[in-house]
């Protein structure tokens, strides 16, 4: 007999090269353009806020996993993604402690309480944003919009749209690039940068085209139907960030192809209903959170047709 030290394992014996960490790293790469625009327009404090979020999120994850005597999985980069996304959802003059509290809430309550990575039923960054919005509404909204050349705060484009104050409305092109004046939270100002990142994720096969496409189309069609400019609705507010980076969160969105379409349709509808008829100027985050809750149900009713199983199975009574 020979003394080979052979590994025994069940097939398959080869695996795709990607990993959870590589997927998360790609998401971060996709977020870089938007982060760069934020740094360019808002200055260093924007980057600092995002960094505070990242550090708080990663630290919280490590501490909780240590306390629960579980393997510390901060090297999967998922807490970093959550941190960056939460940072993107903060207004530029948010105090540092708001970033910390939001990150702790996102990781401790929304993610780890439900079992950690992949088990959270809501998008942690969005749930944290909703939590901050409910707890410190003035800090989260009133100062959300600062023109780059001025320290005077004004309403966001969507608030202008809602109030009917169209004279102060920035041009659609400005809304699209986000470079010429600032209209919103740190990460949502440049639709172009987010689009570039989003397309990168689709190209890399990390997210499917279904959720972003259907989400944006629903918003556009809804806008046309009520006689508003569909482009303005797509490029302003959080829709671009939401469609590519929030609604596509694996854990809290459906896995079935049909389910993803229904989910995105729901997100688009609720976003527009809140924008046009609700109390808030923007409804992107609430729409996604609401659809997150419906995800298990959607998955259940949109199962694929299984190979060799007839569509309508008639049980023969014995």
């Amino acid at each position: 007999m020979n003394n080979l030290n052979l590994t025994i394992s069940s097939s398959p014996h080869i695996h795709a090269k990607h990993s959870t960490a590589s997927i998360m790293q790609n998401v971060l790469i996709a977020l870089l353009p938007a982060l760069a625009v934020a740094g360019y327009v808002f200055g260093v404090w924007a980057l600092a806020l995002v960094a505070i979020c990242v550090v708080s999120a990663v630290t919280t994850e490590a501490i909780i996993q240590k306390l629960c005597k579980k393997a510390v999985t901060i090297n999967d980069w998922s807490a970093v993604v959550t941190g960056v996304l939460l940072g993107f959802n903060l207004p530029i003059n948010a105090p540092w402690w708001l970033a910390v509290i939001g990150s702790v809430f996102a990781i401790a309550i929304v993610k780890q309480c439900f079992g950690g990575l992949g088990q959270n039923f809501m998008n942690p960054a969005l749930a944290a944003r909703a939590f901050l919005l409910a707890s410190w509404p003035t800090r989260m909204t009133s100062t959300a919009y600062i023109p780059a050349y001025d320290t005077v705060t004004t309403a966001t484009p969507l608030a202008l749209l809602k109030s009917g104050d169209l004279t102060n409305m920035p041009s659609t092109l400005d809304l699209f690039t986000g470079l010429n004046g600032v209209y919103g939270c740190i990460g949502e100002i440049s639709a172009l940068a987010l689009l570039v990142g989003g397309l990168y994720l689709i190209f890399k096969g990390i997210i499917s085209w279904r959720i972003p496409t259907v989400y944006l189309l629903t918003v556009a069609v809804f806008a046309v139907l009520v006689g508003q400019d569909p482009l303005v609705h797509i490029v302003s507010g959080g829709v671009m960030l939401g469609a590519f980076f929030m609604a596509t969160d694996y854990a809290s969105s459906p896995v079935t192809p049909k389910g993803q379409i229904i989910f995105a349709l729901g997100c688009g509808l609720i976003t527009m209903i809140i924008r046009l008829y609700g109390g808030y100027p923007e409804g992107c985050s609430y729409s996604i959170l609401l659809m997150n809750i419906a995800t298990p149900l959607i998955d259940r009713f949109t199962k694929k047709k299984i190979y060799g199983v007839a569509k309508k199975k008639k049980e023969v009574q014995a």
Partner: peptide
């Protein structure tokens, strides 16, 4: 193996 991330 690590946690399922439900990537689908």
């Amino acid at each position: 193996p690590s946690n399922c991330i439900r990537c689908g």
